[in-house]
């Protein structure tokens, strides 16, 4: 039996349904006048999800085109870059992280290094000015810059 993408998905969904059911079952419910309580609705949903997953397993659709090789690598790199962006966003400040991330993403999307650097710098600076002065959003300046400004 060929294992179509939908079959894998249906197994994952079955697992999810079981997980939800177990989690919901273990909820400690204090006494209340609510005849239904917090368990019933998730249990109902997990049952429904399980039934739908089984139907999907019996009648899977086309598998579609899944990324592999160089493309998959690029997708992973993009997510990693966004994750690093998030991690450094506050400490390194908006301007620096945005410029770096824009340059890397632009390069991943096929810009020449020169274009990517210029575009990334302009994007960071332009958006910073727009957000801070145009819309009044306060963006993180970065913790490293504060000692340089001599704030004590």
């Amino acid at each position: 039996m060929r294992l179509a993408a939908d079959r894998i998905l249906s197994l994952l969904l079955l697992g999810l349904a079981a997980f939800i059911a177990v989690q919901a079952w273990q909820l400690q419910v204090p006494f209340s006048y609510d005849p239904v309580g917090p368990k019933a609705f998730p249990l109902l949903l997990s049952g429904l999800l399980a039934v739908l997953a089984i139907v999907l397993f019996i009648r899977p659709g086309a598998s579609g085109q899944w990324p592999s090789g160089a493309l998959l690598l690029r997708l992973v790199i993009t997510m990693a870059v966004l994750g690093i962006y998030a991690a450094l966003f506050i400490n390194l400040g908006y301007l620096v992280t945005t410029a770096l991330v824009s340059i890397v993403i632009a390069w991943l999307f096929g810009a020449t290094p020169m274009k990517a650097i210029i575009g990334g710098l302009l994007l960071a600076l332009g958006s910073y000015l727009l957000f801070t002065y145009g819309l009044g959003i306060s963006l993180p300046t970065g913790s490293w810059i504060e000692p340089l400004l001599g704030s004590n």
Partner: peptide, 20 residues
Amino acid sequence: VPRWLLVPSVAILAFVGVYQ
């Protein structure tokens, strides 16, 4: 608008939107 400018812009809007 080239994609290599569009995509970082979308990322920036997403981050700033959630952050603020």
